[in-house]
Design a protein around this nucleic acid. Structure first.
Length: 256
DNA sequence: ATGCCAAACATGGTTTGA
């Protein structure tokens, strides 16, 4: 079973690229972020024609997450607990083929300091609490998405360039480490413990041809799912395409 | 220190992204 996460950066602007990738990579489940469209403008017909069911938690202009699956998914949650006044569409959860899929788009948090960074840390605290409750179920769970956090120095092209960036602040990284300390496995690092595994390259600065990237898209596995991990990787070549997203799809292969 | 690119919304230029 293959589960992927892909920040699509505008699903309607990116639909040809998305359909190409689905046809090539054939993930069983694909978690999408930054749909940048309300539910009613989601391209349901094209996604269905490609062979996928879709659960959509959209929002006008910004954010928006979806779970695509070859087999039908059963939605279990929309939005993180504790966010009654949070109107941003950033979390969607569903069961597919016996695996619980948490699809997330963690806030960017720039600029720092400020309300956006406060919101990011608050959102991470809410994710921490919910992640603990998911682990307590002892189910196979993956929390997949754009975390907007570079966990270590190996995950940034330049520490100096990232010094004032919300994605690489000590607080952001500590919150990510705290998540791992609960018992989650960072799938990419379980397969490739060291070295570059970038998932994002800025549109500016010639970042892609110079390989000035960041690792910010992650799949965290609960213990029973980590035991089933066979492989993980980044579909880098997608970043080279015409009209590419600034993120590349990131995926895991699990037994069963 | 800033712009560099891209998308949405709008239809000129701002906001957001990371």
């Amino acid at each position: 079973m293959r589960i992927a996460t892909f920040n699509i950066n505008g699903i309607n602007a990116r639909l040809p690229r998305l359909l190409d990738w689905l046809g090539e990579a054939k993930p069983d489940v694909a978690c999408l972020q930054e749909l940048k469209c309300p539910d009613e403008r989601f391209p349901h017909a094209e996604i269905e024609a490609a062979g996928y069911h879709a659960l959509v938690h959209g929002q006008k202009s910004w954010n928006g997450v979806a779970i695509l699956s070859k087999h039908e998914a059963v939605e279990t949650r929309r939005g993180l607990p504790g966010g009654d006044d949070d109107e941003q569409s950033r979390y969607l959860e569903a069961a597919v083929d016996g695996v619980l899929i948490g699809a997330l788009y963690l806030p960017n948090g720039n600029p720092i300091p400020g309300p956006k960074f406060d919101y990011k840390l608050d959102w991470m605290a809410r994710l921490h609490a919910h992640a603990a409750s998911l682990l307590a179920t002892e189910m196979p769970v993956v929390l997949a998405g754009d975390y907007n956090v570079c966990p270590t120095a190996e995950d940034v092209f330049s520490e100096r360039a990232m010094a004032d960036n919300a994605l690489y602040q000590p607080e952001s990284r500590a919150a990510f480490r705290a998540l791992l300390a609960q018992g989650w496995t960072d799938a990419i690092r379980a397969i490739q413990p060291t070295g570059r595994a970038y998932t994002f390259w800025d549109y500016t600065m010639g970042a892609w041809p110079r390989d000035l990237g960041l690792r910010i898209d992650h799949l965290l596995l609960s213990p029973v799912l980590a035991d089933r991990l066979v492989d993980a990787g980044v579909d880098r070549q997608n970043r080279a395409a015409e009209k590419a997203s600034d993120h590349a799809p990131t995926w895991i292969e699990i037994r069963g």
